[in-house]
Amino acid sequence: MGGPFLPLEIYLNVAISGLLTGLVYGLMALGLSVIFGVVRVVNFAHGEMMTIAMYLAIVLFASYGLDPLLMMIPLAAVLFVLGYAMQMTMINPFIARPEHSQFMLLLAVAIIIVNGLLIAFGPDAQSVQASYSFDSFALGPLIVDATKVYAGGAAILAAAALFAFFRYAPIGRAIRACADNHTGALVIGLNVKRLYALTFGLGAACVGAAGSILSLIESVTPSLGPAYTLLAFVIVITGGLGSMTGALLGGILIGLTEALAALLISASAKSMVSFAILVLVLLFRPQGIMGKRLS
């Protein structure tokens, strides 16, 4: 129990740390949002895929001393390949099937990932202790974890790269065309299935990067996968399912509120607060903060 009479600096410290963590959550949620926005499939294995990236980052660090921040790009590439392959082999045939059928498919994938990781790494929590793990920056009276600053910065870079891709790259624009008008995209001769696979790959690359970064600030167990999936849902629905800026904003908002709720109420109440936000958003603004009304 924190109690409301702490000095202001503590609130600010916690808020900044929550905001920086929230940026990484936002990057993870960005992947979910991109996939839903284009492929119209909810990736129920999203958090589980992120735990794969987290474990890879931990293994690379433990065996070769490779810094998770540098491994962000290779791990994004690995997850991209995984996502591309998943979409090509499994999810494309499910595009026209009902939601519960897609849910079942990705749930099966999630079960395999969680338990595969359990066999490979066991149930104990693991994390990365980098050389700068205990460094911090002093900003006047405020003290900010160096790790979280790097993590937040890396998340912004990764998100910016994705924004630029969708804005300027011809393939990125083709993907947006698919999202806007599926039939139209087919008519002008776009290879929609391949573009869907690319999109799912990009969404997975987001969790690859996010997982790599997150391994610096949070420890991971195989059973955290479903919790991260739920967190990603909460964030994208708050921000607006299918909206990229919404996902980042939602991540920041949820990161902030969770950190403050943990301080003000109790650590176990923090997910309750984010679920409360989710319920309110679903009821009063189902399209999310940044989302457009879906037909």
């Binding site: 499994m90 045939p93 099937r97 059928s101 079942m104 498919l105 749930l107 099966a108 994938v109 999630a110 079960i111 395999i112 969680v114 338990n115 595969g116 990781l117 359990l118 066999i119 149930p123 195989p222």
Partner: peptide, 21 residues
């Protein structure tokens, strides 16, 4: 090992959903 049963379980679910929509 813990989890082995559920991996196969997941694989079976996957196969059933894919071949029997």
């Amino acid at each position: 090992p813990p989890g082995a049963k559920r991996v196969f379980y997941g694989l079976c679910l996957l196969v059933v959903v894919m071949i029997l929509p």
